[in-house]
Design a protein around this nucleic acid. Structure first.
Lengths: 232, 232
DNA sequence: AAATAACGTGTCAAAAAGACACAATAATTA
DNA sequence: TAATTATTGTGTCTTTTTGACACGTTATTT
């Protein structure tokens, strides 16, 4: 086949906005660059798309490289392509949004990349337009978590309702009524009582649940309203 | 500045999924290609991104070129980048989702591009992965229109509630209860009574409303539930 | 053993949603 | 010209969901 002629070809990168939750705060996995350009500055983890690689595979490669994880929650978030977003050379960046259980990642791989979990609230300034990417990802998380049960992706396999509530409170940076939250979550019938208790609890031990994976997959796109008034 | 070396550069295109509504059916603006590749086949309107052009400007250029319209509702829908999606040469395509009032477009410009409004229900097969793009755009429309008042973008400036209901029924391909729908729409307080009546109505003439643009812009991202059970 | 902190569940009133009925308007028809 | 018919606007009633709030339970701490 002939090639398209007289047409500009551009660099295409993927950047991954990786969220984690440590039980208290929402965190981002960021790298302190020990390579040029912008060596020493903070940025998202990214890389160029290989010639023979689908976009999502590029993102998954980068995520595996950094965290040692496969099968994590990944979504394409859109593409940033402003002419001067990368001062070195024009680069189109396809953003990927990832949610991981912060306890599962490979610490050695993270260290090898000079990566760190940073609290969203004390996030450093990032290079290029990466701050805007994080802003967009956070908006997306807030939007989607209000309607769909994707918050579970940030929790361990077994978790309590108070843990889930703390996650939601971290995502939206606001308090929630314990009793109404619990009722809402239980009404989804997504939770299976494991019979175990959360041993780390300070006083009364909370029930540990696990996700009903079948129902979760089945009803993921249903409109649930996990937040009282998620007007944005 | 130095350039990134040893890195593949790719073709970057934008493709526009353009929806319109004629009062009865949801329609797509498609072109019958009189150029290679795939001459004679149907496709979405698209083009390559210029070197000095932001992505959304590329899309707006293409949309203006085809319809003569500016200031239309445009959203980026994500990017398709499978290795072999374009058999000629690897091309990344950034999709843009556009809603226009079907009466406003420039018919000569549309004809010049060999473009046609096609009913979604009788859509021909499109080239490359354009069918998947349309599928994604339709999902997005159904998702977003269930929660946010973007349906108005498809209607004339002055419209009646029955017209709006017909639009929603076309989008979701299902009937709705007139009385509950009307109540829901009026409760948003997005509509301003123009004092005029819809003269095309067969019998009793419906009230013509216009959008409260200020409130629309203000409350666009609020979660309204325009569809009874939009489980997807 | 009492105090404390966190958890689970229940109640009640207000708001929203779903099902349905009736009156008003304007074209069509007898 | 009056009755018929199609379409539109608005209202009612019941059920469901939401938001605000209280109480008893469990396990640790004092």
């Amino acid at each position: 086949m002939t090639q398209y002629e007289h047409t500009t070809r551009l660099l295409v990168a993927t950047d991954c906005i990786i969220f984690g939750f440590d039980g208290e705060e929402l965190k981002l996995l960021l790298i302190k660059r020990n390579f040029e350009p912008q060596k020493g500055k903070w940025s998202l983890m990214g890389g160029f798309v290989n010639d023979d690689e689908d976009l999502v595979h590029g993102a998954e490669r980068i995520l595996y490289d950094l965290t040692g994880l496969t099968n994590i929650y990944v979504e394409q978030l859109g593409t940033f392509g402003e002419v001067n977003r990368d001062p070195v050379e024009r680069t189109i960046s396809v953003m990927f949004f990832a949610l991981i259980n912060i306890n599962d990642h490979d610490e050695d791989a993270v260290k090898a990349h000079n990566a760190h979990w940073m609290s969203l609230k004390h996030k450093p300034k990032l290079i290029f337009d990466h701050d805007k990417m994080v802003e967009k990802a956070l908006e997306h998380l807030r939007y989607k978590a209000a309607l769909h049960p994707l918050g579970f992706e940030l929790l361990p396999e077994k978790f309590s309702i108070p843990q889930l509530q703390k996650l939601y409170e971290a995502i939206y940076d606001r308090g929630l009524d314990r009793r109404n939250f619990s009722r809402k979550i239980l009404s989804t019938k997504l939770l299976i009582d494991t019979g175990e208790k959360h041993e780390q609890s300070a006083t009364k031990k909370a029930i540990l649940y696990k996700l009903d994976k079948v129902r979760y997959a089945d009803k993921f796109h249903s409109f649930w309203h996990f937040m009282p008034d998620p007007v944005m």
